[in-house]
Design a protein around this nucleic acid. Sequence first.
DNA 1: ACCTGAACACCGTTCAAGT
DNA 2: ACCTGAACACCGTTCAAGT
Lengths: 232, 232
Amino acid sequence: MWRMARPRKPLLSRDRIVEAAGALVDAEGLEAVSTRRLAAALGVSGPSLYNHFRTKDEILDAVADAVSSRVDLSMFEGVGAGGGAGSGGGGGQDWRCALQAWAHSYRDALADHPNIVPVLARGPGRRPAALRVADAVFGAMTAAGWPAAHATRIGALMRYFILGSAVGSFARGFVDDRAAYDPADYPHLGQAHLLAERQREVDEGAFETGLEALLDGLSLQYEALRRGERPA
Amino acid sequence: MWRMARPRKPLLSRDRIVEAAGALVDAEGLEAVSTRRLAAALGVSGPSLYNHFRTKDEILDAVADAVSSRVDLSMFEGVGAGGGAGSGGGGGQDWRCALQAWAHSYRDALADHPNIVPVLARGPGRRPAALRVADAVFGAMTAAGWPAAHATRIGALMRYFILGSAVGSFARGFVDDRAAYDPADYPHLGQAHLLAERQREVDEGAFETGLEALLDGLSLQYEALRRGERPA
DNA sequence: ACCTGAACACCGTTCAAGT
DNA sequence: ACCTGAACACCGTTCAAGT
């Protein structure tokens, strides 16, 4: 009758699996993650994972969402509230500062875990943290006075840029081998092999330059909109 | 003595393999490509591929480079030649038009073969067509008067944006399922499930808006540079 | 409920063997 | 030189069996 009151605590939990998977991705890359290797790191056998996740992809999605959850969104909170057209010195462009701060926080989160970025790039899908990000950006931009269609586009194009900078590190893409870039074939790539060692510097400079250009361009569009011009 | 003058033509060639691999990637996605499946499509057995490529990754790199080779670079040819500071109406910003045309050509090439983009995102490495692209952009920007460090950054940030728009299609990332986006969790995503069906439209709009903003921002920096201001 | 070993249908790659 | 079948060391996932 009185059955044996289940003494053993479960060995696994979703959180423990996600943590171990994240550590494995960070340390050895996406392709190093197999269900058998992950299970071994957790001290269990491969199939045990399927008691907590339906597929390996669901585990990787959870790892990606844990990274998304570390993106700061607090800068969007006050956007568009007091502002209006001419409150202080800046002319109601607090959306710009928020976007800039958010972009940096987003990029930092991805830079801490570059190996998981391809999974993150698959899109928000049903990942709650990624959806919170999309929601916050859209909400703040509309609150700042951007029409809904523009707010959607801003969320998308910022995502393109930030994701692109994380997934396609420019400098990392070049090989640290002088012989790889023959001047006869590529007349302007004489220094390209040096890019490999200056990786961080180049990618950070490009990110800052691009982000500033993007925000400058959006400010111009915002002003044109305020002046009542028809959007393109 | 006179050995049997080799009658049979080779069944395989690098080109035939790359073509079949590209077709398979386009039709069924990256993860559908296995050496056995690819070989079967070519009417040979799996290991035969290793007579022409050292690894499966090398095959995928070749497929990616074939896509890069379809990017038009002709718009960079005359950049900076006649121009200078005040030749015609535009004030010597032909680099801007070239960059815009190139960005569109690049995006179109990627949009035709979205499944191979993750491979392309690994960087130019030793892929000749990708290196020709990097070479052409850098050469044209320096010819137009950008300092070398800026030209490098422009190549990188344009790559971020274009690659990001291809790899992380914004609209494709949302699920066509109203129930997935509970208004209690995501107050501003009430229409998000509609994004899935308006995918092309949203992504194209975001790309155009972002590209224009980027180029507007770069033009501002270019003018500041011409005026002799110290770069940030 | 949660973990196990065995099994299935796959992988990428190597290698000795054939022509 | 180029293709083959057999083999090795892996995969993700299912499932009956144990507790």
